[in-house]
Write a protein that binds this DNA or RNA. Structure first.
Length: 330
DNA sequence: TACAATGATTCATA
DNA sequence: TATGAATCATTGTA
C-alpha cells in the first residue's frame, strides 16, 4: 500500500543486504560501486548514528577500525553536513553564554605587586631599592646596612629566578597541552563537526585552568617576598641601644615630669633633637618607660631619686640651662 | 648561656 | 589618634 516514492521509516524493516554498510567493511569504491536503493538511505543514517553512539563502548582498536570505516562510508559527507547544521543551530543558543570575562582583580594585584617588588618584569633591583628607601625613611635603618642590603638583594633574586623557572614550566606545559588538545579536536573533526569557535573555547578553558595554577604560583611568590621584606624591614631585628647621653636626657625629662610624663609634641621634638633620635623613638621610649615604671615603681625608685637629685642640683645652681620647657609642672 | 634590659611593633581602647 | 598593654627580637651582662 505504500507509495513507491515514500521510503520506509528508519526503524522499519531492518533486513540488511548482504553487502550492508553496517558490516563496516570500508566501502572505498564509492557509491557507484555499491549502488543502493534510494529508500535505503534513511535506514543507513539511523544505523550510522547507532554505530556512532556505541563507538565509545568499544575497545580502542575496534573503535579505530570503526572510525576508519565510517570515514570512508559513502554516506558520511551527507551525515556530516546534517550534523554541522544541527550543531550550528544549537550553537547559536550558546554563542552568547561565554564571552571574554574581565581580568581577575586578585591576579592584577598580584601582578602589580610582583612588578613593584622587581620579581616580575625586567631585572633592575627596584624592589630592593624600594625596600631600602622605605626602611631608611621609617627611621629604623642604620647607615651601614649595605651588607644586609646585598643579602636582601640576593634572596630576592633567588625568589625571582625560582618564580621565572616555574612560570616558564607552566607556560610550556600549557602550550604542550593546548597543542595536544587542538590536534585531538582536529582529528575528531574528521568524524564529527568541530567548529573553530569550539576549539577556541576549549583553548580558553585550558588557559583558564593553567592561569589558576599560575595565580597560585604568584600568590606563593608574593608571600615569600612579604616574608623577606618583613624580615628585612623589621626594626626589632636591628635594635640598637640609645647612647648613654640620650638615655640620660630622656630620664631627666621623665623623672622631672613624673606626675605627668607626657611630653608635648614640641617637647618630643626638642628631646629628639637633643638625643639624636626620631620623634617616634621618643614616643616609644616614653611609652615603654611609663608602663615599665608603673609596673614596678619600687625597682625604679633608686633611679628616680638619682634624677630628682640631679634636677634639684641643677635648679640650685641657678643656671638657666636649656632644659625642655616644663609641660604641666608640679 | 641564661636572663634582664631595652627599643620596636601590634592591637585594643578611650 | 595617642596611649596602655602585651609581646617580640635583640643587646648587654653576670
Amino acid at each position: 500500500s505504500a507509495h513507491p516514492c515514500v521510503p520506509p521509516g528508519p526503524s522499519g524493516g531492518g533486513r540488511r543486504s548482504p553487502h550492508h554498510p553496517w558490516d563496516l567493511e570500508p566501502c572505498c569504491a564509492g557509491p557507484l560501486a555499491c549502488p543502493e536503493p534510494v529508500g535505503q538511505n534513511k535506514l543507513d543514517i539511523g544505523d550510522i548514528l547507532q554505530q556512532i553512539m556505541t563507538i565509545t563502548d568499544q575497545s580502542l582498536d575496534e573503535a579505530q577500525a570503526k572510525k576508519h570505516a565510517l570515514n570512508c562510508h559513502r554516506m558520511k559527507p551527507a551525515l556530516f553536513s546534517v550534523l554541522c547544521e544541527i550543531k550550528e543551530k544549537t550553537g547559536l543558543s550558546m554563542r552568547n553564554t561565554q564571552e571574554e570575562e574581565p581580568q581577575d582583580p586578585q591576579l592584577v594585584r598580584l601582578d602589580n605587586m610582583l612588578l613593584a617588588e622587581g620579581v616580575a618584569g625586567p631585572e633592575k633591583g627596584g624592589g630592593a631599592a624600594a625596600a631600602v628607601s622605605a626602611a631608611t625613611s621609617s627611621g629604623g635603618m642604620s647607615p651601614d646596612s649595605s651588607l644586609e642590603h646585598s643579602d636582601y638583594k640576593s634572596k630576592l633574586s633567588q625568589i625571582r629566578s625560582i618564580y621565572h623557572t616555574e612560570l616558564e614550566k607552566y607556560e610550556q606545559a600549557c602550550t604542550e597541552f593546548t597543542t595536544h588538545v587542538m590536534n585531538l579536536l582536529r582529528e575528531q573533526s574528521r568524524t564529527r563537526p568541530v567548529t573553530p569557535r569550539e576549539i577556541e573555547r576549549m583553548v580558553a578553558i585550558i588557559h583558564r585552568k593553567f592561569s589558576s595554577i599560575q595565580t597560585q604560583l604568584k600568590q606563593s611568590t608574593c608571600e615569600a617576598v612579604m616574608i623577606l621584606r618583613s624580615r628585612f624591614l623589621d626594626a626589632r631585628r636591628k635594635r640598637r641601644n640609645f647612647s648613654k647621653q640620650a638615655t640620660e636626657v630622656l630620664n631627666e625629662y621623665f623623672y622631672s615630669h613624673l606626675s605627668n610624663p607626657y611630653p608635648s609634641e614640641e617637647a618630643k621634638e626638642e628631646l629628639a633633637k637633643q638625643c639624636g633620635i626620631t620623634v617616634s623613638q621618643v614616643s616609644n621610649w616614653f611609652g615603654n618607660k611609663r608602663i615599665r615604671y608603673k609596673k614596678n615603681i619600687g625597682k625604679f625608685q633608686e633611679e628616680a631619686n638619682l634624677y630628682a637629685m640631679k634636677t634639684a642640683l641643677g635648679a640650685r645652681q641657678g643656671d638657666d640651662s636649656p632644659h625642655t620647657p616644663n609641660s604641666t609642672g608640679n
